[in-house]
Design a protein around this nucleic acid. Sequence first.
DNA 1: GTCTATATTTTGATAGAC
DNA 2: GTCTATCAAAATATAGAC
Lengths: 212, 212
Amino acid sequence: MSFPPRYRTPRARSRVEAAGAESRAKAVRAAIELFSTAGYRGTSIALVAEKADLSQSGLLHHFPNKAALLAAVLEHREAEDGRFLAGTDDRPPLGWAAFDALTSLVARNSTRPELVGLFVRLSAEATESGHPAHAWLLDHYTSTRNWLTDAIRDGQQRGEIHPDAPVAVLVRLTIATLDGLQQQWLLDTGGTDMVADFTTFVSGLRTQWDVK
Amino acid sequence: MSFPPRYRTPRARSRVEAAGAESRAKAVRAAIELFSTAGYRGTSIALVAEKADLSQSGLLHHFPNKAALLAAVLEHREAEDGRFLAGTDDRPPLGWAAFDALTSLVARNSTRPELVGLFVRLSAEATESGHPAHAWLLDHYTSTRNWLTDAIRDGQQRGEIHPDAPVAVLVRLTIATLDGLQQQWLLDTGGTDMVADFTTFVSGLRTQWDVK
DNA sequence: GTCTATATTTTGATAGAC
DNA sequence: GTCTATCAAAATATAGAC
């Protein structure tokens, strides 16, 4: 984990605590909205506070500083993702099914421009090694890459994906496609269909590396 | 053009003008370096000035404001690109040759992390409609898309690329791949080989859509 | 063309009352 | 938990001397 959890594990709350938690959650939502359009650097905590109907100090009561707010945002995002890719089952999708799961993820993302914006902007910002989300970003890419690598390898072992498929390259290309499509989708005035495009990409992979 | 040119067209300069132009160019170079790591929003003009061995006001003598500095940076980038994709010939590469030209571009980029960083960061920042580089970014994507679209269509007409190839989708996927690989390349500690990955992508396209 | 000095705003953060 | 008041630092920009 790149950021230590600042939420306590859920438990029964007194009424006062519940009110506080609500403000906090409101602040996180506001931060997501603003970070996703102006980025982390581009949004002031004052603006987040305003959007959350709090004073600046009221906001800073919940987070020691701006970086902590970002940490909470990232945490929330991961939680909302809720291990989406793990599938509704307990078992993660493997082989080509992993690509289907990714397609579902794209479909879901295309209804959530805020989350896409958040990710695209933070990904670019946090490439810098000093950025407060740098560790998170590294972790995100590493785990995504590992997950997809394992899925493809499993497909090869089960004779579903061709053994000659260059796994590492395909993993990087797939992730690149996902990221790049999001970038274009954000920029476009609604013209591009991420799902259709990614589907085409996947079917290209299949025609080349499917064992049939 | 999204930004009006602020450089005059080259001509003979007096010695005083030459000194001024040198400071200006130095500032642009410094700005590129800083924008490419911390982004536009993340770098102050004071820092750019320092890196260019100028006072802040000395820098602002050449550019009315920060946005103008950014405009000069973008202009410089386009100039340095020097219509790289147009090829060394007078004629732009068409059909599969366009993808070879893109591969060359990737190879060139992989020796210039500053330019890649600049583009990746600005692309993400400038997705926002209020950003000073927003128009530039739109223009950049539009012209790239048009160029590649025309190249593929030409390949189809000459019987080099399969007529059933979904041109618009391939264009978006190719651009997405380029952008996404740059993102990963920036993040990585030197592990990924953009050129090799993109080459694999292109050969995938060829095996699927080449007319042979 | 370049500098020093300064004005103005914005930002992140703290202190302390309620 | 939330607010008002306040601070110190940083950032953009301008004025005017040289």
